[in-house]
Amino acid sequence: MTDKQKTTINIRGLTFLIADSNAYFSSLCHSILRGFGATRVIEARDADDARKALVQHKIDLLLLDQRLPPTGGLEFTRWLRSDPTNEFRTIPILIMTSDTRSTIVSNARDCGANMVLVKPVSPASLYDRLVWIAFNPRKFIDSKDYFGPDRRFKIEGYPNGVGRRAGDKAVDLGTATGPALSQSDIDALLKATRNG
């Protein structure tokens, strides 16, 4: 596969679920995915709707608001990942958040999210993260305390360098509260504890 092919994703025929209480934001993401070639995009406004949509529409990728009512997207992720009988337990999950404190990002990772996407969302940032999930599969870990993508992973950069930010660097996990992080800091936080 060439580098160019590794920056191209074919999402026709896949079913996406956008779970966000903000209908306008949801329609924005919906439009972006349509622009990428998605043919099936479902929207949910709260966790109950999202649970129903998972089963009813056989969702392939979940875009989840961190503040999804009533208990938040992180709790939803924890619920989905922790249920051994749930057939959607391993689907890719992107947490969308405008609260980029390091605690939120590390909690998202510890709940089993694949990625954290900073709001406001741009077409480029969403496309790059979908590419990342598609071409950089991570092992799953099933342990007493955690089920989800391996949190100890190293990203050598986006395929073909696309989407790589100048500020990408390894960072230590933050303390309990702290200043907001940029998308590149968040990407860095989600990578590289194994092999530096």
């Binding site: 994703i9 896949l14 070639g37 999930i133 092992k139």
Partner: peptide, 22 residues
Amino acid sequence: AREFHVETKFQQYAKRPGGIPR
């Protein structure tokens, strides 16, 4: 703890040829 490989439908489909370039 165990680790295992998963190739989701998203990953299988996304890698098909015929996608829209970035």
